[in-house]
Design a protein around this nucleic acid. Structure first.
Length: 497
RNA sequence: GGUCCCAUCGUCUAGCGGUUAGGACAUCAGGUUCUCAUCCUGAAAACCCGGGUUCGAUUCCCGGUGGGAUCACCA
């Protein structure tokens, strides 16, 4: 079977986490079978039209790496891929139904239908429009809704690739609207027509559509269409409470996660694990991995809670396992102001030094700003440090002095010039610096907690930084020594506390 | 309320009649020449309840309970 799947979102401008999974599953199904993945825009609701929504959607999908083979932007054999551009298709199929006596015009106003609804509710019976079906409906024309006429009121049975064997009672069958008064089709009608014309083999969507399945089955039958494979995905639930994850529960859009420094790899990995596993204890999956391993029969039937802590963990995992060039391309817009005028190669070095410490890309400025600009000297960070507060000024100054001498010797051996633009060479590297620092430990007879704390704070004045040899190596000999000297001078200038 | 679906640590899950019920996130306690992060080690933590089938049920069946979804000229 030639697999053809689709992602068919409504362009609302807000790309929900659930939307991504609704795109990922069909993407995986198509790709693992060398099939086609289609993007179709379901824009039949004029009231919810948002101007840039489609562009946002396309941008987000591309960012995630979920590329489609056919779509509104690239065309394809079954174009157009926007529902508003397919009106004539729906009308054609609707006329077929009318001809067969399986569709009719709804002569009532929304208010009148609502009155019927109230009446039913009053008598504690569920409202079914078909109980109010007009005897002699007018000839259908745009301006009137067109309804489907249910003729076989019976229990329906079907199979779902995730949910298994399902059924629904005849009470769920009703004369639903196929085409609205504005002439545009409802989702209920349009998706079936489009899926058929676009030869989609799978219908993937959330389980909220399960309760409409009986109606869809009846429509496939009336249209004389062979139903596709049904794939209903359980909901992603809000972190607290038991409800579908929604905007009003503070659910962030994918764009927001992107802006907060989350990687597409982490988002996809997180989403695919939410309700699916490959049966092993593997929990890190690249898009290629999940494409190879994904299996609908292993998808969970219950809803899964969205756990942002797990997403954060995965983000860290992915930041660490990405190769530097790739990570570098991702952080382009995350550098802090001090990095502005710095060369790309220099930024690359700094990034490499902090890669292991990043949890999100948004952590980058705080973690790197002192590499690009000298930090504000704050002696309190030294004098109040838990390992340093019991040392006297002269002791601190001596430690710095001895360290500076040692590092100057190393710098001379390295033959580095005063220009920070020249690449570091020779002996000023993490290995030699590690050795030099070990020597200093012996020379000063200080504990690592004392000497290293002092040096680390003196060059960074930051709450955290990479390991000392690494920090010195990236800073370069001139900058390292210059910063140590400034701190030494500052300690000498101010009176002892 | 009608209809439909679901049910293992706090969370995501493995399990497909016999297991010390496994893993991961989170939490807590240690370890790694400085901080933060990583990494390593360890701890605590679960089969919703009641029947039935069976020599034996977390697993199969039924019922309850709980949770979810849906009942639009939205998708």
């Amino acid at each position: 079977m030639k697999v053809r799947t689709r992602f068919a979102p409504s362009p609302t401008g807000y790309v929900h986490i659930g939307n991504i999974r609704a795109a990922l599953f069909p993407y995986l199904l198509a790709k693992q079978n060398a099939g086609k993945f289609i993007l179709r825009i379901e824009d039949t609701d004029q009231n919810r039209f948002v101007a840039d929504a489609e562009a946002v959607l396309i941008d987000t999908l591309k960012w995630l790496g979920l590329e489609w083979d056919e779509g509104p932007d690239i065309g394809g054999p079954y174009a157009p891929y926007r529902q508003t551009e397919r009106r004539d298709h729906y009308i054609k199929w609707a006329e077929k139904l009318i001809k067969k006596g399986l569709a009719y015009a709804d002569p009532y106003t929304p208010e009148e239908v609502d009155a019927f609804r109230k009446e039913s509710e009053k008598s504690k019976k569920p409202f079914l429009y078909r109980n109010y079906r007009p005897e002699n409906p007018p000839k259908w024309q745009i301006g009137l809704p067109l309804r489907f006429k249910q003729t076989k009121i019976e229990r329906k049975y079907w199979h779902d690739a995730i949910m298994g064997d399902l059924e629904a009672g005849a009470e769920t069958l009703d004369d639903f609207i196929l085409i609205k008064a504005d002439g545009l089709p409802t989702y209920n009608f349009a998706h079936i027509v489009d899926d058929a014309e676009m030869k989609c083999t799978h219908v993937t969507r959330g389980i909220e559509y399960l309760s409409s399945m009986a109606n869809y089955l009846a429509l496939y039958d009336a249209l004389e269409l062979k139903p596709p494979i049904f794939v209903h995905m359980p909901h992603i639930m809000a972190p607290s409470g038991n409800k579908k994850l929604g905007k009003r529960d503070g659910a962030k859009s994918v764009q927001e996660y992107r802006a907060e420094g989350y990687l597409p790899e982490a988002m996809l990995n997180f989403l695919v694990m939410l309700g699916w596993n490959d049966g092993t204890t593997t929990d890190i999956f690249s898009l290629a991995d999940m494409t190879a391993k994904f299996d609908l029969t292993r998808v969970q039937r219950a809803g899964a809670r969205f756990d942002e802590k797990r997403l954060l963990w995965l983000n860290g995992q992915w930041i660490r396992r990405l190769d530097l060039a790739k990570l570098f391309s991702y952080v382009r817009d995350f550098w802090g102001p001090t990095a502005k005028s710095t060369s790309e190669s220099r930024k690359m070095e700094v990034l490499e030094a902090v890669q292991e410490r990043l949890k999100t890309l948004a952590d980058l400025p705080a973690l790197t700003e002192y590499f690009f600009a000298p930090p504000q000297i704050d002696l309190a960070m030294i004098t109040e440090h838990k390992s340093l507060k019991n040392l006297t000024r002269p002791q601190l100054i001596t430690m710095l002095e001895v360290s500076i001498l040692k590092l100057e010797t190393l710098a001379r051996v390295s033959g580095t010039s005063d220009s920070p633009l020249l690449p570091m060479s020779g002996h000023w590297n993490t290995e030699s610096l590690q050795a030099a620092l070990n020597d200093l430990l012996a020379d000063t007879a200080r504990k690592p907690a004392e000497l290293f704390s002092l040096l680390r704070i003196a060059v960074s004045f930051a709450p955290f930084s990479p390991e000392l040899p690494r920090t010195f190596a990236v800073l370069g000999p001139d900058e390292t020594i210059s910063r140590l000297k400034k701190v030494m001078a500052a300690l000498a200038e101010t009176p002892n506390a």
